[in-house]
């Protein structure tokens, strides 16, 4: 048993090396003096300076973070509640529903992007006519449409992860709490959520990652005010990826890594 765990730990070390190998490389190359990211031309802080002065790139990073955060919240709620209900109740045509959820996962991004674009365009006309009767606001492609599209392909990931966690659980476990007088929502919150938490965390991490990195669907549903980081980067690739893009990734990875480790330490100290 000990031996098996030790082997797994060693293997995990190797896998972490594999996962971080390109990341180490891009951090190193963010200090590259050459403007083409694939040739080493000496040490330089030039790209960090350029990044600092690149307003649109920083704005795009902010937009991406906002979109990913909202998408994650929506996906977690939809996915967790959906998985629970599908598990608890015997819905008619459940199998069809189960398959439907996978459609956003299986179809290539370009198709999803195009069909969402058409959908939003078709919907926009009557929706705006209706909105116009009582408000100045207007439905246009932008943050809202990107978040909708991202949530549509992210929430199945949460749903699948939570369903796996649910397997074998007594479907009426939270009724015990209800019998003790807790309202259904509170019972769900107190009994199910803590139990499902590991799967919810996994699902949230996957949603956030998918949303941060999505480019094709985003292209079709974005508006002029909602450029995201991946969109910017794909555009820049045409001109030659300059190391300021490595710099933005490096800053991002290091910042999150530090944040995660520090918050972990703080939590331990508080205990």
């Amino acid at each position: 048993m000990e031996l098996v765990n030790l082997l797994c730990a060693g293997w995990s070390g190797v896998v972490f090396l594999f996962l971080y190998l390109p990341i180490v490389l891009l951090v190193v190359y963010s200090f590259n003096a050459s403007e083409l990211s694939i040739i080493w031309g000496g040490f330089s802080f030039e790209w960090y300076e350029k990044l600092w002065n690149n307003g649109p790139l920083i704005d795009a990073t902010k937009n991406s973070l906002i979109i990913a955060a909202v998408t994650t919240v929506l996906s977690v709620v939809l996915g967790t509640v959906g998985a629970w209900l599908l598990y608890r109740y015997k819905f008619p045509a459940l199998r069809a529903l189960g398959t439907l959820i996978f459609i956003p996962m299986v179809i290539p991004e370009v198709i999803m992007g195009v069909s969402m674009l058409i959908l939003f365009t078709v919907v926009a006309v009557p929706l705006n006519a209706w909105l116009g009767t009582f408000t100045e606001a207007e439905f246009a492609r932008g943050f809202a449409t990107i978040i909708i599209a991202h949530t549509t392909f992210c929430f199945p990931f949460v749903l699948v992860a939570v369903q796996a966690r649910l397997a074998g659980v007594d479907p009426f476990i939270e009724e015990a709490a209800m019998d003790l007088g807790a309202p259904p929502l509170k019972a769900f919150w107190l009994v199910m959520v803590p139990y499902l938490l590991p799967a919810i965390v996994s699902g949230a991490l996957m949603s956030f990652t998918l949303s941060m990195d999505e480019v094709i669907v985003t292209f079709f549903v974005t508006g002029p005010e909602s450029q995201t980081l991946p969109l910017k980067i794909f555009g820049l690739a045409k001109k030659g990826l300059d190391p300021s893009l490595n710099a933005v990734s490096a800053v991002f990875v290091l910042a999150t890594a530090v944040l995660v480790v520090v918050s972990d330490r703080v939590r331990k100290l508080n205990r």
Partner: peptide
């Protein structure tokens, strides 16, 4: 934060604007 960022779309229109749709970079 995101919710407050959403309505900003409508306001930009009052100024004189140019909506440029061009190749990246």
């Amino acid at each position: 934060l995101a919710a407050t960022a959403l309505p900003s779309y409508g306001q930009a229109k009052k100024k004189s604007v140019l909506n440029l749709f061009c190749w990246s970079e």
